[in-house]
């Protein structure tokens, strides 16, 4: 009995550390004031506004391909619409990069590298980093070629983060559907497990094997 408890505990602790919360590995943390964190979380109210702010402040260099938003010079190019009719809203990356090669290389000339596409950046960096970096790029990543466009505008930065979140993550309605699905699946499995266990007990009693 004591052996079973020991092995169960050590296994659970091990997987907790490896899969859920690794207390030994280094973590980077970035601060974000609570009121702005609230804005960045609230996709429903601020994503639309965030998109407009993105178009005004960021679109000159950054695309959000998964939302069909391309850098301004590409967006103004009539070729884009023809291509989108053929390939859909989200152009394949190789098509996009070869047709608009000159636009992208122009950006590379001014910044040293092509500014990254921001479709999944929210999932990579998280809202705290995005907020801190966009607000003061040099402070978070010294030597970066990102210009301090949003410095001194924390609320608008948070709204842009909310927009990026809305692109990267499923919508709130979709999320609640998934939660419902998850709860249903898990509840079904637990109920089935319990029923099987009870059925097993009864059947074995009847067979005299208990």
């Amino acid at each position: 009995m004591i052996k079973s408890i020991f092995f169960t505990l050590i296994t659970l602790v091990f997987f907790y550390i490896i899969w859920i919360n690794n207390i030994f590995a280094p973590h980077e943390r970035y601060e974000m004031p609570a009121q702005y964190a609230k804005i960045a979380e609230d996709v429903k109210s601020y994503a639309k506004e965030g998109k407009q702010l993105f178009e005004q402040n960021c679109q000159a260099c950054h695309s959000v391909r998964y939302d069909g938003v391309y850098i301004s010079s590409v967006q103004a190019n009539p070729k884009l619409q023809t291509l989108q009719e053929k390939y859909g809203k989200v152009l394949p990356r190789d098509v996009y990069e070869s047709v608009f090669y000159e636009d992208l290389m122009g950006l590379k000339e001014s910044f040293g590298k092509v500014p990254p596409d921001l479709s999944t950046i929210y999932l990579v960096k998280g809202k705290e980093y995005l907020y801190a970096f966009t607000l003061e790029p040099q402070k978070v990543l010294p030597g970066t070629s990102m210009p301090p466009v949003m410095t001194g505008r924390p609320e608008e930065t948070a709204k842009i983060v909310a927009y990026l979140k809305s692109v990267a993550e499923p919508s709130p309605e979709e999320k609640s559907k998934r939660v419902l699905m998850g709860v249903g699946t898990i509840a079904y499995l637990i109920v089935m497990g319990v029923l099987l266990w009870i059925y097993k007990g009864r059947l074995l009693k009847r067979m005299g094997l208990h």
């Binding site: 998850g182 637990i190 497990g193 266990w197 059947l203």
Partner: peptide
Amino acid sequence: HPYITLKEGAYLMGYLAVFFFFVFFY
């Protein structure tokens, strides 16, 4: 069957419940 199939079937449901917890929520 039915001794092991039912016993391990019940364990299996528990395992799948943990698995789907991770799939949906973590």
